[in-house]
Computed example of a mutant assay.
Amino acid sequence: MRCPYCRENKDKVIDSREINEGRVIRRRRECLNCGKRFTTYERVEENPLRVIKRDGRIESFNRDKLLRGILKACEKRPVKIEDIENLIDDIVVQLYQKGDREIPATEIGEIVMEKLKSLDSVAYVRFASVYRDFKDVEEFLKEIQRLMKKGGKSD
């Protein structure tokens, strides 16, 4: 594993533990060159999912792309990165459990919004505004009112 600080590839594993019901192994590592510590995650490589985009294109599912979108929605919110990782793991498991290897992007977006709603309502509204392409403040207000009626979590 290459050190993210000095780029050397000599390290030792300090701690390993299973997370997310054994679906992921978290390893704490220490670089033998610079002495800094970093964390890596290992997960089982599964049959790849493919995403059917709104315009009909098909592309490989990209977990990192999903992570970036959710991180952006959670920016400056009191949401732990571990909670975001768990949320993404849950989404991926849900997608695989569907049994389909090609999943519409709209379906993925709806799953993300449902999960975000219970994690942080502000992050949910941020994600929904981009995903649903809100055109004006009125669309924001309607979504916030719907969320308030359902009792969304806001921390």
Results as ranks from 00 to 15, higher is better:
Tyr124Asp: 05
Arg29Ile: 09
Ile144Met: 04
Asp120Ile: 04
Lys142Asn: 14
Arg50Gln: 11
Asn20Phe: 13
Arg68Glu: 15
Val92Pro: 06
Glu18Asn: 08
Lys65Asn: 06
Leu66Ser: 11
Arg54Ala: 13
Asn62His: 04
Thr106Ile: 10
Lys153Tyr: 12
Lys115Cys: 07
Arg54Lys: 14
Ile58Thr: 15
Ile19Met: 05
Arg23Trp: 01
Glu30Gln: 13
Tyr131Lys: 01
Ser154Met: 10
Lys65Asp: 08
Gly99Thr: 09
Glu82Ile: 01
Asn86Ile: 05
Cys74Ala: 15
Leu49Lys: 03
Val93Ile: 15
Leu116Gln: 00
Arg37Pro: 12
Ala123Thr: 10
Glu46Arg: 13
Lys10Arg: 07
Arg68Leu: 15
Arg37Met: 08
Asp15Trp: 09
Asp90Thr: 15
Glu114Phe: 00
Glu139Leu: 03
Asn62Glu: 10
Leu32Cys: 10
Gly69Ala: 07
Leu49Thr: 09
Pro104Leu: 05
Pro48Arg: 11
Asn33Met: 06
Leu67Trp: 01
Pro104Cys: 02
Leu141Ile: 15
Phe38Asn: 05
Gly152Lys: 05
Ala128Ser: 05
Glu46Ser: 04
Asp11Pro: 00
Glu45Thr: 14
Leu141Pro: 05
Pro4Leu: 11
Phe61Met: 01
Tyr5Ala: 07
Leu147Ile: 11
Ala105Ser: 15
Ala128Gly: 02
Lys115His: 07
Ala128Glu: 07
Cys74Gln: 09
Lys65Pro: 08
Leu71Thr: 06
Asp89Gln: 01
Lys65Phe: 05
Glu138Trp: 01
Lys76Asn: 12
Glu110Leu: 07
Arg57Phe: 09
Pro4Gln: 04
Leu116Ser: 00
Phe140Lys: 03
Lys12Ser: 08
Lys10Asn: 04
Asp136Ser: 10
Val125Phe: 08
Val130Glu: 07
Ile88Phe: 03
Lys149Ala: 15
Phe38Glu: 04
Leu119Tyr: 01
Leu87Lys: 05
Ile111Thr: 08
Lys98Tyr: 08
Glu75Arg: 13
Arg101Glu: 06
Arg146Ser: 15
Pro104Ala: 09
Lys10Pro: 03
Arg23Lys: 13
Gly109Trp: 07
Met1Arg: 09
Met113Asn: 02
Tyr124Ala: 02
Lys65Ser: 11
Arg77Lys: 09
Arg50Leu: 13
Asp100Thr: 02
Val44Ile: 09
Lys76Arg: 10
Glu18Cys: 07
Ser129Met: 12
Ile108Ala: 13
Phe61Gly: 02
Leu71Gly: 05
Ile81Tyr: 00
Ser118Arg: 09
Asp136His: 10
Glu102Asn: 08
